[in-house]
Amino acid sequence: MKQQWDRLQAYLKTNKPELLADLAPPATDAELYALEHGLGVTLPADFVECLKIHNGQKGESEWLFSGSEFLSSQRIMDEWTTWKELLDGGDFDGAEAEPGAGIQPVWWSQKWIPFTYNGAGDHLCLDLDPASGGRTGQVITLWHDDGARKKKAESFAQWFAEFVDKTV
């Protein structure tokens, strides 16, 4: 993870210094504990390692991930809580998802952890409760108004490495 971040930071330093300055400092152990406790999950090690380098963005620049905000531990909790309230309120009752292979056939699962946000209610999520054939920690799409759920990568590390390769 550190090598990928080093490559990305070198690119940002030269090409987008304001975006580099917008990256938050590392997440503390207390912040990570609060996040995992609040979500009721153990986060994948590769994602924890990422947050220990940069705990998302401060929100004072353009978004890091191709038009999506890199969520901090607090913003992850905020977005997850919004989805949880919708689930508990019955908003997804009768909603039909169209999951790809290895993804649960639900509109939203409490074990889908958002780590990006596009400003319109859509996310990339860590899937910590995959269907048969899926892999815990795979990265999936989550659309607020469309039931399509697709796997983007087998892990956060794979997804991040592909993002860095396309960017730098």
Rank of each mutant, 00 (worst) to 15 (best):
T14M: 10
T14D: 15
T14K: 13
T14Q: 15
N15E: 14
N15A: 10
N15H: 15
N15T: 14
K16L: 08
K16Q: 15
P17F: 12
P17L: 09
P17N: 07
P17H: 10
E18R: 13
E18M: 07
E18F: 02
E18Q: 08
E18S: 13
L19S: 07
L20A: 11
L20Q: 08
L20D: 03
A21R: 14
A21V: 03
A21H: 08
A21K: 14
A21E: 14
A21S: 13
D22L: 03
D22A: 13
L23F: 08
L23V: 11
L23Y: 10
A24G: 07
A24I: 00
A24S: 12
A24C: 09
A24D: 13
P25V: 05
P25N: 01
P25G: 15
P25E: 13
P26D: 00
P26Q: 12
P26E: 15
A27M: 05
A27Q: 04
A27R: 07
A27C: 08
T28A: 12
D29V: 12
A30M: 07
A30G: 11
A30W: 00
A30E: 14
E31K: 07
E31S: 11
E31A: 11
E31L: 07
E31H: 07
L32W: 10
L32A: 12
L32P: 12
Y33P: 01
Y33G: 06
Y33Q: 15
A34C: 09
A34L: 11
A34I: 03
A34R: 11
L35F: 06
E36A: 11
E36M: 11
E36P: 05
E36N: 09
H37M: 13
H37G: 00
H37N: 11
H37Q: 14
H37S: 14
H37Y: 06
H37E: 13
G38P: 06
G38Q: 02
G38Y: 02
G40K: 08
G40S: 05
G40Y: 06
V41W: 01
V41K: 03
V41G: 05
T42V: 14
T42M: 12
T42D: 10
L43R: 04
L43I: 07
L43S: 03
P44W: 01
P44M: 02
P44S: 02
P44C: 04
A45S: 10
A45C: 02
D46C: 10
D46R: 02
D46G: 09
D46F: 08
D46E: 06
F47C: 03
F47G: 09
V48M: 00
V48K: 04
V48I: 14
V48D: 00
E49R: 04
E49T: 11
E49A: 15
E49G: 13
E49W: 03
E49N: 11
E49K: 05
C50Y: 04
C50S: 12
C50L: 01
L51H: 02
L51I: 03
L51G: 01
L51A: 02
L51F: 04
L51P: 02
K52D: 00
K52P: 01
